[in-house]
């Protein structure tokens, strides 16, 4: 178990600290990985494979990631705002970045219910 995610393909190795990984979005057979420093890295991997790596590699304490539909994996520690009716989710560290993403109303409603349940 590790506190960082390591992605290896035929050309490169990418290591990202769990706390720096903000979200991953799907782009067909590719995934775009966004980190706190504003970097975007594209890897030749489907989102499901990234999910599998997160599941396998990261320690449970570092694993606050959630798959939202077919296209997104977000780090819940950066969840700042959620509005299912607007289909909007905003990720932020409340100082350096604020990213607005779109997901389905139903998925975001489930996410809201999950977080509500978790804090009760």
């Amino acid at each position: 178990m590790s506190d960082s995610l390591t992605i290896i393909n035929s050309n490169e190795l990418i290591r990202i600290a769990a706390g720096s990984l903000v979200y991953v979005s799907s782009s067909g057979n590719y995934s775009d990985i966004y980190t706190r420093d504003g970097e975007r890295r594209t890897v030749t991997m489907q989102l499901g494979m990234i999910e599998e790596l997160i599941n396998k590699q990261l320690q449970e304490s570092d694993r606050e990631f959630i798959r939202i539909g077919k296209s997104l994996i977000v780090n819940l520690r950066f969840l700042h705002y959620l509005n299912p009716s607007k289909k909007q989710i905003i990720l932020s560290d409340n100082s350096t970045f604020k990213i607005s993403l779109e997901a389905s109303k139903e998925a975001l409603k489930q996410l809201k219910d999950y977080i509500e349940l978790k804090i009760k």
Partner: peptide, 19 residues
């Protein structure tokens, strides 16, 4: 493993469990 088996209207908590 079937990590791609999800619809756009679903969410999945990624934790250490059987896929």
């Amino acid at each position: 493993m079937h990590f791609d088996d999800i619809s756009d209207n679903e969410i999945r908590i990624i934790n250490r469990q059987e896929a």
